[in-house]
Structures are given as structure tokens and as C-alpha cells.
């Protein structure tokens, strides 16, 4: 509305790239639902201390393995029931969101930043540097991701920081390859050459001129990588190599609840469900981002 009233003529002010992107993005209903769910989870994670009904570590010894509130024998005090040592599952899930999202964010940021730098250097300078970096990436890619992560954690010792580091390293080659490929397509375009003629140095060319034009696939990969990171972190947690008890992490919650699969379904189901939903939300949003950012898919 403000746009048209400003110009008041028949000429419409062209959309900014972000407005254009947004109009494509909201056409994709799945992506929008994914985004809403992610915003919801982020809200829970940020305000976990106020939202969660109990402290995640607090053990209610009188209420061990209480079923969810609506089930038979449920207690209104514990909506999603309690686990084997009497901790409120809902509170642990909410606090776990904090940990899981933080881990996802850190892993993705570390591998994204490192991957962009390495990929830019490889694509920009070429030659020996390129070969060295890309062969290193190939070596990392040639090993199964989780196996490599387990090996690294086994060397560094099981902790949440070490498993984060390991996963960052595992995801690194994807970003390196993606960045390098984009750089190679951009570097010979005329606008890069004209910046060169204007006297731009290597750093300026890499980060200010070329990088913004390579970002679209990286954003998509990072979003999808987020869900992978959460999933693999949960797997490491499940194997006892990630978050150590009593930290409320979704993967390790699943792992400790293994023994109750037959007797108390809610202890396993809810952490599993929330992992599923979060990963699904990120994947939906990633797909939507890809569609909105890829000019070839636009009409």
C-alpha cells in the first residue's frame, strides 16, 4: 500500500530483492508451516525458563513414570508424563530445544564460515591451493559421516562440545564444494572483472564482490544442514557420545528411555516426535528457500 501511494502514478516501484523473495516464499505453504514451527520452537527455547512448568533436572520421586495427563493414571501436573527418575518430560523437551537448536546453530555456523572461507580461497586462487583444499574435502567426504564423527569424538572424548566439533568437521566439505562451485561460475563474469579493473584487491573481490552472489545455495544448504546437525547430534547423544546426563538433550533422552519402550511409551515417543517435527520443519523451510532463491524455478 505504501509503495503505490508513494508513486501515485501507474509506474509501480520495483520490488526489492527481499520483497520478491518473500512473495515467492509465502506461496509455498509447507515452507511457511515449517517456518512457523521453527519460530515456535525458537520461542520455547529462548523462554524455556518461563515456559517450562518444572526445572528439567528436578526429580519427583513420588511420580516416577507417570503417563501423560490425558491418559489413564495421568497427572495434570505433568502434561507429557515423567521419565524413569521422575523428571517432567515436557520441561526436559523445552529445555532440550535450547540445547539442540544451539548445537545445530553452532555446528552449522562453524562449518558454514570455515567452508565459505576455504571454498572462496580454493575457487579464487586455484592451482595448488585449490587441489590441496579439495583433496582434503574429498578425503572427509569419502568416510561415512556418522562413523567419522564417532571416530573424532572417540579421540577427543565424549562431550557436547567435542561432538559439535566433530560434526562441524563432518559437514565442512559440503560447504567447501558448494562455495567453490559457485565461485568458479561467478569469477569470470564481467562484474568481477570490472571490479578488478577498478583496482579491487583479492579480499574485496572474494568477500564483497563474489560472495553475496554465491549465498543462495549456501543458505539452502545451511538450513537443510541444520536438521542434519540436530539429527546426527541426537544420534551421537543416543550412542552416549554427545550430551552427558543429566543434560536434557533430545537424543540422549531417547537413549536413556530405551529400556521403557515396552512399558512406558511416552518416555520414548515425545523426544522422538519432537526431533521428527523439528527436522521436518527445517527441511520444509529449506525446500521453500531453495525454490524462492533459485531464479530458474521462478516464472
Amino acid at each position: 500500500m505504501t509503495m503505490t501511494s508513494e508513486t501515485q502514478t501507474t509506474v509501480r516501484v520495483p520490488q526489492t530483492p527481499f520483497a520478491e523473495f518473500w512473495s515467492y516464499f509465502i506461496q509455498n505453504r509447507g515452507a511457511l508451516i515449517g517456518l512457523c514451527f521453527i519460530v515456535f520452537i525458537v520461542f520455547l527455547a529462548v523462554f524455556a525458563d518461563f515456559v517450562a512448568p518444572h526445572h528439567p533436572h528436578e526429580q519427583f520421586r513420588d511420580f516416577i513414570l507417570v503417563p501423560p495427563a490425558w491418559a489413564e493414571g495421568g497427572n495434570a501436573q505433568f502434561w507429557l508424563g515423567t521419565d524413569g527418575v521422575g523428571r517432567d518430560i515436557l520441561s526436559r523437551l523445552i529445555h532440550g530445544a535450547r540445547l539442540s537448536l544451539l548445537i545445530g546453530l553452532v555446528i552449522v555456523s562453524v562449518s558454514l564460515v570455515l567452508g565459505i572461507c576455504l571454498g572462496l580461497v580454493a575457487g579464487f586462487f586455484g592451482g595448488f591451493v585449490d587441489v590441496a583444499i579439495m583433496r582434503f574435502a574429498d578425503i572427509l567426504l569419502s568416510m561415512p559421516a556418522l562413523l567419522l564423527a564417532i571416530a573424532i569424538v572417540a579421540i577427543l572424548g565424549p562431550s557436547i562440545v567435542n561432538s559439535g566439533l566433530a560434526l562441524s568437521l563432518v559437514y565442512l566439505p559440503h560447504y567447501v564444494r558448494l562455495t567453490r562451485a559457485s565461485v568458479l561460475t561467478e569469477i569470470n563474469k564481467d562484474y568481477v572483472i570490472s571490479s578488478r579493473v577498478a583496482g579491487a584487491g583479492a579480499l574485496r573481490l572474494m568477500f564483497i564482490v563474489i560472495l553475496p552472489n554465491c549465498l543462495a545455495p549456501l543458505i539452502v544448504q545451511a538450513t537443510l544442514g541444520f536438521s542434519n546437525a540436530i539429527l546426527d547430534m541426537a544420534a551421537l547423544g543416543f550412542l552416549g557420545l554427545g550430551a552427558q546426563p543429566p543434560l536434557p538433550e533430545w537424543g540422549s533422552m531417547l537413549a536413556t528411555a530405551r529400556e521403557f519402550i515396552q512399558s512406558a511409551w511416552w518416555v520414548v515417543t515425545f523426544p522422538g516426535l519432537i526431533i521428527l517435527m523439528t527436522v521436518l520443519a527445517f527441511n520444509l523451510m529449506g525446500d521453500g528457500l531453495r525454490d524462492a532463491l533459485d531464479p530458474k524455478l521462478k516464472q
Binding site: D190, Y191, S194, A198, G199, P212
Partner: peptide
Amino acid sequence: IQIIFQNPYGSLNPRKKVGSILEEPLVIN
């Protein structure tokens, strides 16, 4: 010594506004 390229669709950085495209040589030098 400056250059003008053949294809105006490739010679302007698509992620930059006209202002910053024009000012880039001044910023650098």
C-alpha cells in the same frame, strides 16, 4: 583506463545497488 563490457546484464553486480556499483572504484582508490 576503464572498460565498458559488451553485456550489460553481466557487467553489473546483481546484488549491489546502483549507488554502490558506481562508488566502488572510489571506495577502492
